[in-house]
């Protein structure tokens, strides 16, 4: 097994692990805002790790530079767009007045989005 295959396997497996934990977090987290943590962050990093691992599997990197360039472009745009989508969803919910989850009886930190000036 060549060294690049070992590196690629480690990165792809790590990416799959992050995607799995992201899915578990989607099921386990209590409300909308907290669910966006696993959905937004874990899936972004997991996809980036899988794609980076695939880049290590490209044979003859000098001749196949176009494949590497396409993978790099996908990674760059994924890093830009995935957090933007998460931000857009979160801000839409916040402006619509959805309140963050809190433990029963926890009165600290209560604020309503329609009473705030800075949004």
């Amino acid at each position: 097994m060549a060294w690049n295959e070992i590196v690629a396997s480690v990165m792809i497996l790590l990416g799959c692990f992050l995607a799995l934990t992201g899915s578990l977090g989607m099921l386990r987290m209590p409300d909308f805002y907290t669910r966006l943590h696993p959905a937004g962050k874990n899936d972004s990093l997991g996809s980036v790790l899988v794609l980076s691992g695939l880049a290590f599997l490209v044979t003859h990197p000098v001749e196949n530079w176009l494949v590497l360039a396409k993978l790099a472009l996908i990674i760059v745009f994924l890093i830009i767009t995935a957090p933007t989508a998460t931000h857009a969803i979160t801000k839409a919910a916040w402006l619509d007045g959805l309140q963050p989850w809190q433990r029963p009886g926890d009165k600290e930190g209560v604020y309503k989005s329609w009473e705030r000036e800075d949004v």
Partner: peptide, 16 residues
Amino acid sequence: DQVVLRIITKLLVPFM
């Protein structure tokens, strides 16, 4: 007035 969306859109539309 959504700064993030505006900037990212400006960045992405030519590539799309």
